[in-house]
Design a protein around this nucleic acid. Structure first.
Lengths: 337, 337
DNA sequence: AACGAAAATGAAACCGGTTGCATTTTAATT
DNA sequence: AATTAAAATGCAACCGGTTTCATTTTCGTT
């Protein structure tokens, strides 16, 4: 049951294995008849190219690894989709790994991935404490950080999480809101979330608003966690009039909780989401949110990575995607009672 | 900038490369001092294991390929998550490929994947015309079909799409509905969708209901397509009183369309979804649907695959997961006017 | 001290392509 | 027919681990 090799094909075709190798990769420089003969043989013998052998010989593979905190978040799923579709069409295959927002696991995963000698690496952020490690990786292979600005020499495709978040709070302020709560991501662990938290703090102090511990929730970007956080907020003696949610899933769950408490969105509480998940425009009320072009981040990252992998010596990639407000109906101006 | 190899480590440690190889995989059969010395050297020299070399030598890799129609469907994303988490913890890495519901692409992808000599293969269904090809693959490596019953000798973890769908229609019938429309998947292409379509046909004829072409929509399982389909249905002179949606995303979009048309769910039209996506319980009205344990399908498939890959000679895997109704508020009994 | 079994290690073939360079074949030109 | 450039193909070392079988070391026993 052993696999046929190019050597066997070569023997039967009366040529050398080099010629068979060329038949696969550079058919144009073979004699037409030889080529036909070899191809026929490969067909007959059910030949299957052995990528592992090629990888070893060439020192690299046609694999690209994507590292995300979790696979089943809508936004990362979109990003992965963008990457996957683009790279698959270029002949690369995409391996996905998840870190569960854990720095140690991230580091371990990255090491294991490097053993595969991938052609490129796509990271969704990275833990702060792994920064120097990531930089050392970037010296070894094409690498792009996604979803966040990264410091040189790292390439990135993302946006300014700090600024975007700040803009949202400022917007809520301009609508008259003063009691503004924030359901944030795991800011003690994730750089991206940390920046958003910082934006919240700076917003408060910048507008002379008091910091209230009970107005800030650290939650994973899931429906369940959004629910948990909102359940806490809605029972507060002094309820917030507006809540920033770190992602749309949390926002959707928050709306449900608010409704279940007999309150209305945006009547009693305004909700501002983050990401603009596909489903957000279909819910009731349609969600006001900030659009993050998750899929485009994937596609663009893949495109740049592809260029780097093909050896383009372009300067460092620093691509900032646009994140416009999507004003729908879950947020409105506060009318003074 | 060449990578350090075990041979270099061996030379510096004054041992043979075989010993270094053992230090990596079977440290217990090395002398303690030798082991320490080698490990120290690996650390100092920044040694990185070359998986490609190992793959070639061993004839297999520690990679598992997952083939899905599309990555960013919530249900497949869940399945992939389940797979990924399970297998990553077992030391495998997971490569994802998508077929876009295209048989030719599926076949092409599978061939390319086989070049990687993966340790196992996980398929989300497969195109009907590729069946014999898939069966031939199953003879070469551990392979499990997910989301659908498969015929021997194929292993599968899934459920009976035909029966589950039939149950839903029967349920709607028992609620008094007679004008029942169906937004189906791409049944001309996907086996899974084809079976559901057949269930619809059999339901109609089984209950003496007329087949109306305008009541059946072929649509991809996306929000946009669900919207398109429902927009068509809602303008029909004789509107359906209940609509089966092939997946929850379509159902969510359908509800929005109905609301926008000034009608209510379930007041005017009952909606029955499929999948029980995480978000479905959070929307308004909470969606009545059929729960598909997407993540569990992934986990179970991964578990079985893992067993097969470790050489367990268990009989064929035929695991049917439970798909209970989740009765929420988008569906109700028809009261005769 | 001698012996045998167990533990530790080495030698080298092997996995299946790749590729630079050499060589042969073919075709074009004078 | 001779010359030469171009096209086609071969040779063989190489990529970096793995693994079988043989050999050497170590160590407990008598």
């Amino acid at each position: 049951m052993r696999k046929t090799t190019i050597h066997e094909i070569a023997a039967k075709a009366g040529v050398s294995s080099a010629t068979v190798s060329r038949a696969i990769h550079s058919p144009h420089l073979l004699n037409e008849k030889t080529l036909q003969r070899i191809r026929q043989l490969m067909e007959d013998q059910d030949y299957s190219y052995n990528a592992a052998a090629a990888n070893l010989s060439k020192g690299t593979s046609s694999g690209v690894a994507v590292v995300v905190p979790r696979v089943n978040s809508p936004v990362f799923a979109d990003t992965i989709t963008g990457i996957q579709e683009y790279l698959q069409s270029c002949g690369y295959y995409v391996t996905v790994a998840s870190t569960h927002y854990d720095a140690a696991e991230e580091r371990h995963i990255l090491k294991r991935i490097m053993e595969q000698r991938p052609a490129g690496l796509l990271l969704t952020g990275y833990a702060a404490e792994n920064e120097s490690f990531v930089i050392s990786l970037a010296a070894k292979l094409p690498l792009i950080v996604m979803w966040e600005k990264a410091i040189p020499p790292l390439n990135y495709v993302g946006f300014n999480n700090y600024q975007s978040t700040l803009d949202i709070f400022t917007h809520l302020f301009s609508l008259g809101h003063r009691r503004i709560a924030a359901i944030l991501g795991p800011y003690t662990k994730v750089v991206r979330a940390k920046r958003r938290y910082q934006a919240y703090l700076d917003f408060l102090s910048g507008h002379g608003l008091p910091f209230r511990q009970e107005y800030v929730c650290e939650a994973e970007p899931t429906l369940a966690e959004g629910k948990r956080a909102m359940e806490m907020l809605v029972t507060l003696p002094e309820r917030p009039t507006a809540v920033f949610c770190n992602n749309d899933l949390q926002a959707i769950a928050a709306i449900r909780v608010i409704n279940d408490a007999g309150l209305s969105v945006p009547g009693d509480i305004s909700i501002f989401g983050f990401d603009d998940a596909a489903v957000s425009q279909y819910i009731t009320p349609p969600l006001t949110t900030l659009h993050v072009p998750s899929r485009e981040i994937g596609t663009e990252s893949a495109r740049f990575l592809h260029e780097l992998m093909r050896g383009a010596q372009s300067g460092p990639v620093a691509h900032i995607v646009d994140t416009p407000f999507i004003l729908r109906n879950s947020c409105r101006a506060l009318r003074e009672a």
